[in-house]
Nucleic acid binder design. Sequence first.
DNA 1: TCCTAGCGCTTTTTT
DNA 2: AGCGCTAGGA
Length: 801
Amino acid sequence: MPVARPDDSNDLTHEPAPGGLAARARAGVTPAASYLQGLNPEQREAVETTDGPVLVLAGAGTGKTRVLTTRIAHLIATGKAYPSQILSVTFTNKAAREMKERVTRLVGDVAEGMPWLGTFHSISAKILRRHAELVGLKSDFTILDMDDQIRLLKQVIQAADLDEKRWPARMLASFIDGWKNRGLTPDAIPAGEAGVFGNGQGGKLYLAYQQRLKTLNACDFGDLLVHCLTLWKGHPDILAQYQERFRYMLVDEYQDTNVAQYLWLRLLAQGRRNLACVGDDDQSIYGWRGAEVDNILRFEHDFPGAKVVRLERNYRSTGHILKAASHLIAKNEGRLGKTLRTDDEAGEKVIIAGAWDSQEEARAIGDDIELFQSRGAALAQMAVLVRTSAQMREIEERFIAMGLPYRVIGGPRFYERAEIRDAMAYLRCVHSQSDDLAFERILNVPKRGLGDATLQQLHLQARATGASLQQSAAILIETEEFKPKVRSTVRALVQAFGRWRLKLEHARPAEVAEIVLEESGYTDMWQTDRSADAAGRLENLKELVRSIDEFPDLPGFLEHVSLVMDTVSDDSVSRVSLMTLHAAKGLEFDMVFLPGWEEGLFPSQRSLDESGRAGLEEERRLAHVGITRARRHAKIMFASNRRIHGMWQSSMPSRFIDELPESAVEVAEAASNFAQGGYGASRFDRQPSFTSTYATPGWQRAQAAKAAGPQAGAQAGRWGGDSGGFGSRGSSGPRHASRLIEGELVAKSSGPASEFGVGARVFHIKFGPGDVFAVDGNKLTVDFDKAGRKMVLDAFVQRGA
DNA sequence: TCCTAGCGCTTTTTT
DNA sequence: AGCGCTAGGA
């Protein structure tokens, strides 16, 4: 394929690039191309195979981002493309930001001019603003967030005379999102699916929703992509422009693309065919929101002649951690197959530890962290990764009780907070008289006596005249429609918006925002609020006003907020990170705690129920992601009892624990009882003994410990010394039991039959007395007198009366 | 129009 | 268990 030169005169869409930048970039590059140095052969191949379709299969920790950024630098430095001719797509704003920074570091300011580096959604929005009228929008269309979307859908459902209780808007939203993820417009839904919701009206409601969006001059996130598809399919000339412009295309996290994104890419790539996708099928964890692992599995089929480069050399983790992760993920069937390897030392084994219940688990984590911290480890290098956010509470409580600094990553986002959304709604109303959803939101916030009745009148007027709510308000205050009191309130509001809009022409947006919040009584509302978080909310509002100053104008700010929902957090204090496994993708830590590896929780029962084998494989990938976040130390934990929705449930260790390779893991013994066995607070207990003093595998030791009684395993290497000690020291029952289990569960969780037979009378520490209903290895199904039928490990019950 | 009691739901989450 | 929503009453 001929190499496209940036100055090709047949490039009709060529934009005059900033003069001399490419030349400058090129000049800074020695023939040896310094940026290529330090790349391993595979990475280098991934960078230098510039033309034609390329799939880079980049396992965890193999330098994926480095390849992507170097590739961009390479394209620019060799003059193959101007920055403005490279399309680089990421999934998150964070990833986009990071990539921009790293490219800048490589090639200098040139990268700042990379206008087409961003998320699928931000790039789509940019394209749509230029051609909005071709898809039935105006160029200043608003982008609705989920909250707006739900409220709009509620209206649609109401209008269709459906019971909101029976047909929740959220459910419809997920159907519509599902369709949009597949690039389906209302007319394209498969016949069988159109009847999914609201007595067979799903398809109709989708259409009604799209029509409402059009009247509102708005679109939701999914539309950004779907409208682009519509645009390009309906206007080949415009598609051709973009195909011409994007000489090179790069996609990060390709395994996370959905069908719509795939179609989007394929349309563009039909031009130059220079599409490089980077991804890892083993890290595909977003199937539940429409990601198609198939996209990456079928890449070679979809883009014939594609070159596939595998990055398998891992620079992050030690040998045992990698081995554990690889062995686990090898159980998945649908994968392209990669084996991570490292030149690093074998390092510490992955530690597996059981706890009686989730509280003890949290306690053990806290104690481990404290111990390591006392030995000089930085809190910022430790992370606790959980399956569900509900698990976080107990851990947080423990950290708070201990005074351990921590940070939750991926919690409720700044722009999702109610006070921020209210403030944003005010600004949107100032910006646009036709933003009905925003107007509806603030009509009676703060309370000003304009309720449902008033809103109905406005809606009626709006529907009759085709005006927006704000315009309708302006009309109605000139009539006798409203009661006097309402009329004067509405008039005041309408006049206020007029005033604020006028201010916008002279004052800085941030100043206007401040005035708006002040004069509308919104700030007052929180000042008089006596609830605990009112002060924090006022703080957030100040922060919001401050951040407006970073943008040239109000529209710019509004666009930013609708597309970029995250804010940068402060990194000044070293803290332990607490997050879900999903949020952890792309991050790494020296030490990683993985609690809650229990059947039902992880793998999540719901995943299994809803998606069967595919669900299980996705959960397994999630486990793989979790383990591979660790550089040097990983500890997997499970609790035998956990409160779920307020009910205590006993649980079995996760099947994933059984799937770990024996040679790379080590089973920790329960600690507390040993302290009384003569070893006391020995130096063994004090050491965070990642370095086992024993060469024998964990199971053997655990087995031996079981056979020889409590003392035998007392000095075994494990995390945390006397961790988990207080609080459960007195209750030797569970402690004793859990020690036995830990030895057994990994080695033979489906092993020899229990000592209890069917019908035996047993006693369980938490559930009380019961009768054994069934026996499966060491797992008993017991009908408890009070707690009902539960599955428990035999070691947790004693022979009952 | 506002307040409150009761009901139901409960993964993961980005844009 | 806890939260958010809804409906119904004041």
